[in-house]
Design a protein around this nucleic acid. Sequence first.
RNA 1: GCGUCGGUGGCAGAGUGGUCAAUUGCAACAGACUGUAAAUCUGUCGGACAUCGUCCUACGAAGGUUCAAAUCCUUCCCGGCGCA
Length: 412
Amino acid sequence: MVKPVTFEIEVKGKGNLARTGVIHTPHGDISTPAFVVVGTKASVKSLMPEDMTQYIGNQVTLANTYHLFLQPGHEIIKEAGGIHQFANWQMPTMTDSGGFQVFSLGAAFGKGVTKFAQGDVSEVVEQHGLNVYSRKVAEDHGKLCIIDEDGVTFTSHLDGSMHRFTAERSIDIQHAIGADIIIAFDECTSPSAEREYQKEAMDRTHRWAKRSIMAHKQNYDALKKQGLYGVVQGGQFLDLRQESARALSAMDFDGFGIGGSFSKSDLGDSLRVVNEILPEDKPRHLLGIGEPEDIVQGILMGCDTFDCVAPTRIGRTGTIYVMTGKMITTPCGTFTYPETKKINLNNQQYKTDHTSLDPLSQGYVAQTYTKAYLAHLFRAGEILGPHLASIHNLNFIVNFTQNLREQLLAKT
RNA sequence: GCGUCGGUGGCAGAGUGGUCAAUUGCAACAGACUGUAAAUCUGUCGGACAUCGUCCUACGAAGGUUCAAAUCCUUCCCGGCGCA
């Protein structure tokens, strides 16, 4: 049987792991490297799908299994004919498995921890406590999920109802949702988890990975239409990352996600050791990462696609990406890319700044609207503010990534 | 004119003898955000020094009572309502 999701490499970088390629899916091709827009609840917050085609230019969109399972329920999406029909997403789509919610509603719940350890991990550990996965700590902190060998029991953040996710269950739900690329149920670990726990969680994720493949293969209809990615874990421990990459490489996945937590300082190393092992002819998606400089790093280290909520999340509250005008060249000269900074339009100075949002960006919104106008929209609480800022930020990051792709193509 | 209720920090609005430089909300000012518990969250928000903190000036104005007043009394100014 022909696989629904296949990958073709166009060119490879010299002296690094970068490559350009095309991911073929039933709903179209994705030219990589590419940024994946996040629309968790089958909605890119504040945007119409038409905004994506007209003003952003993204090729692929990612929704979330856990959120759609809770609301409106995957059966309703199935009735509608799948997520493409339901949400009018006429492009390749992905669904995340719910593995991130094991983290965000579990270890991270109520603590303000992110999957990125900034600076010294031991400080995070000290601040938030070790063994955050123990039952007692879970109760103390009111976590909304408990993990066991077979799966995860969630308490809905919407209404408190109890739900059970297993590898098989996540795959079933993702079959109903019908995205082109689906992801095996994994556990996104906290950066504050110690090595012993990272190893334990990783091994469990590998067992869930095997079960996910089995579940996927049992649904012949889905097998024809949806590709399945397995997720590499291992946290900030390079040897665990390698072990995870080896284990998953041996499994019959159509591609790979690289998930879990990272240290900001050695993101590149983590990705390199993983991508040196993962089969070259399969696409690699870096889960949940995406500041501009992270994407440069990720591409150099062999990642093909990236998703991140930052452009829409920061955009909704008034922060936008702009170019400083300075260009940065990576050490071996592979890429020259614009230095990026984030500015908060709520800051006083922008009230009277009548220059365009980002004079150096080519995007329609960046060229057409001014900082003073958006500053006004945010202050006035007008929904157009979040809308325009989200479009701009997404256009910015999609083009940023696309530009890196074009440089690789041109130089090779 | 008489009666009555009221005048609190940029605004709204608590407080009604000490724990009040004064709850809270909004506004303002700044910060955070990386597989979205997120149109969210955090901090500051009279002034000056400034490490907890210290000292000034403040609750319409001016006096007064009291160890102590945004809070009680007197007069005045201003506003709402009622009666003329």
